[in-house]
Design a protein around this nucleic acid. Structure first.
Length: 620
RNA sequence: GGAGGCGUAGCUCAAUUGGUUAGAGUGCCACCCUGUCACGGUGGAUGUUGCGGGUUCGAGCCCCGUCGCUUCCGCCA
């Protein structure tokens, strides 16, 4: 009987010496010494060195086969002499003396190297993704991903959750990202949408009484890519629970994340409970709602110091309703050259700052371009506010608050990076909580939902009736790790009366709410439990665990940044036959849609009229 | 949709800042080599310098346009 292997390429050890074995795999590398040839044979499990003696009948033929050819060797396991043991290989104590060879799959010249650590351009790597996936790091990443997902499933089930599947072909949701649409053949002119997330389904499962739901759920969003955001599709660990508070959900997720990150990483991990930071505090201190807490720097408000200062640039900003924020960097006073400060100012300007001031405190006094404009008591005030020690430096930004926070956040990150303040061997998690329910639209001056209209307002109906809308928080939260947002979540608003009221505050009529969200409201009118959930991104978790800066490195077959699959050539044009069934005529991209649509409709009506006239004439 | 960066051999990069026939490593091809494990050695082939135009005696280098890649902003309830 024919067989391909008795062992994998990672299996053999010195205890197997003397065994007659058969190994199959890819030719990883060839080292031809004239009198003897060494071949590293590689498969999913590892590498084994094959030795071919010139006396073997296939010795001459071996020359023909290039690296990455798939071959099967039969031979005997022999021990390596102590000086030829390779400690880098798990199978390094032995080698296989080849006696027979069979070529199973010939390989042409490969477009980029696999055995060597060579960085090929990404477009090429994506086109030949099956080759790229043979490279050790990428292969390991995909294996890690598989292990992480199966461990998540096991752990969730152990915590009493059950995995439920929800439709892939569903309807377009009114809020949120752009949908991917799928035309219906049975109902020409109508479209399914791929789910941006199984949001409504998981809530309906709670209404259906299933209590603890999870799903490793595919999500589809037609939005542009980022380094940590794959365009098109991605996976999230979708979670929903009934009869829970925000803290119940936090406890479950903290347990899960601690377990997964401990199991699959050797980095130090924040211990549960993770620190909780109100949204406004996060914005004030870090200038972002996804702070990297490995960076110890924080912004402080020093507007009051400069309100009546002799430093006019800042004083006038404060008088005109702006703010001054400072970032203290401890202990670098004497350590950085002048160029460092110039570079930081240039950086601040590159992200939109008008300028940036700084003060260096030394044992001898202050060094700064702005100190000469300031009174001694102002300097003393600053010193007290930030507990300044000699050697500390303070950077200052002044502008409208929103702008200062945004720029300050980027300056904080840049300082952290440049000064090496960010420990790469730590995972720091935090919850961002107390997102405002409403905000003021800057253009229209109207109250609008600030994030998710379906979250439960803190304080419920009572808060909606009695509090100023802008003072109401939502039970909404983000989980953040090392500056990467893993997920948003919320306690949902399951009460139709509270939902109508919340929408009323944001300017929606009851009829509009019924029209747009009628399905959910109908369900909530027939006995809905309080419920809430979260949906951490699986790709982002694996990306953090694999220490990859780019999300495409942890996805087996990712889109490129333009949402194309270069290997499968997707998206692609389709047959006229398929379009005819769907009654779809693609418009040339350069044509104006509205005008062309009207013209085509008019033309269609004209053709129909001509046909009807002809038919009538034929009858008569 | 907008901004920045990049584009030279299959791949990674160089080309003394506008000056002779565009080089090196790696890969590829041929030959040599019995202990390598990124083996080593000798020789060889490989270029529309992304594309189009302009400036110039002369452009890989400068200018304009265009395309592609990438990072960020917008967007991502």
């Amino acid at each position: 009987m024919h067989m391909f292997r008795t062992h994998t390429c990672g299996a053999l050890r010195s205890s197997d010496v003397g065994a007659k074995v058969k190994l199959s795999g890819w030719i990883h590398s060839v080292r031809d010494h004239g009198g003897v040839i060494f071949i590293d044979l590689r498969d999913h499990y590892g590498k084994t060195q094959i030795v071919v003696d010139p006396k073997m009948h296939f010795y001459q033929e071996l020359d023909r086969w290039r690296v990455e050819t798939v071959v099967c060797f039969t031979g005997t396991v022999v021990a390596r002499t102590p000086e030829t043991v390779n400690p880098k290989l798990e199978t390094g104590e032995i080698e296989v003396a080849a006696e027979e060879m069979e070529v199973l799959g010939e390989a042409d010249v490969i477009p980029f190297q696999i055995a060597k650590d060579e960085q090929a351009p990404e477009a090429l790597r994506l086109k030949y993704r099956f080759l790229d996936l043979r490279r050790e790091k990428l292969h390991e990443n995909i294996i890690l991903r598989s292990k992480v997902i199966s461990e998540i499933r096991r752990f969730m089930c152990d915590m009493g959750f059950m995995e439920y599947q929800t439709p892939i072909l569903t309807s377009s949701s009114p809020e949120g990202a752009r949908d991917y649409l799928v035309p219906s053949r049975v109902h020409p002119g109508k479209f399914y949408a791929l789910p941006q997330a199984p949001q409504q389904f998981k809530q309906l499962l709670m209404v259906a009484g299933f209590d603890r739901y999870f799903q490793i759920a595919p999500c589809f969003r037609d939005e542009d890519a980022r380094a940590d955001r794959s365009p098109g599709e991605f996976y999230q660990l979708d979670v929903e629970m009934s009869f829970v508070t925000q803290d119940d959900i936090f406890a479950v997720i903290e347990k899960l994340l601690c377990h997964i990150f401990t199991k699959f990483s050797r980095k130090e991990i924040s211990s549960a409970p993770f620190v909780r930071i109100p949204y406004r505090e996060a914005m004030a201190k870090y200038g972002t709602d996804k702070p990297d807490l490995r960076n110890p720097l924080e912004m402080i408000d020093v507007s009051s110091v400069f309100a009546d200062s002799g430093f006019n640039a800042f004083a006038s900003t404060v008088k005109n309703g702006g703010v001054v924020r400072a970032i203290k960097v401890p202990g670098i006073g004497g350590a950085q050259p002048r160029k460092f400060y110039d570079d930081m100012i240039a950086f601040a300007q590159s992200v939109g700052a008008k300028g940036m001031a700084y003060i260096i405190w030394t044992a001898e006094g202050e060094k700064s371009p702005i100190v000469k404009f300031m009174k001694p008591e102002e300097l003393a005030q600053l010193k007290a506010m930030a507990s300044i020690q000699p050697g500390d430096v303070m950077f200052f930004l002044a502008d409208k608050e929103a702008k200062v926070l945004e720029i300050g956040g980027q300056v904080r990150t840049e300082l952290g990076n440049r000064l090496g303040l960010i420990d790469p061997n730590v995972f720091k998690f935090c919850w961002i909580v107390d997102f405002p329910m409403f905000e003021l639209d800057e253009e229209t001056n109207q109250i609008i939902f600030s994030h998710n209209p379906f979250s439960m307002p803190q304080g419920g109906m009572e808060a909606l009736l009695n509090k100023k809308p802008l003072d109401i928080f939502a039970y909404q939260y983000d989980i953040v790790c090392n500056g990467i947002e893993l997920s948003s979540g919320a306690i949902r608003n399951h009460r139709p009366d509270i939902m109508y009221k919340a929408f009323e505050i944001a300017g929606y009529k009851r009829e509009t709410v019924d029209e747009r969200f009628g399905g959910m409201i109908r369900a909530f009118k027939l006995g809905a439990p309080p419920h809430g959930g979260i949906a951490p991104g699986v790709d982002r978790m694996v990306m953090l665990l694999a220490d990859e800066p780019n999300i495409r490195e942890v996805i087996a077959f990712p889109f490129n940044q333009q949402a194309q699959d270069l290997m499968m050539n997707a998206p692609a044009e389709v047959d006229m036959k398929q379009l005819r069934e769907l009654r779809i005529i693609p418009l040339e991209p350069e044509l104006k849609f509205e005008e062309t649509f009207k013209k085509l409709k008019a033309e269609a009506a004209r053709i129909r009229e001509i046909e009807q006239t002809a038919q009538a004439a034929a009858k008569a």
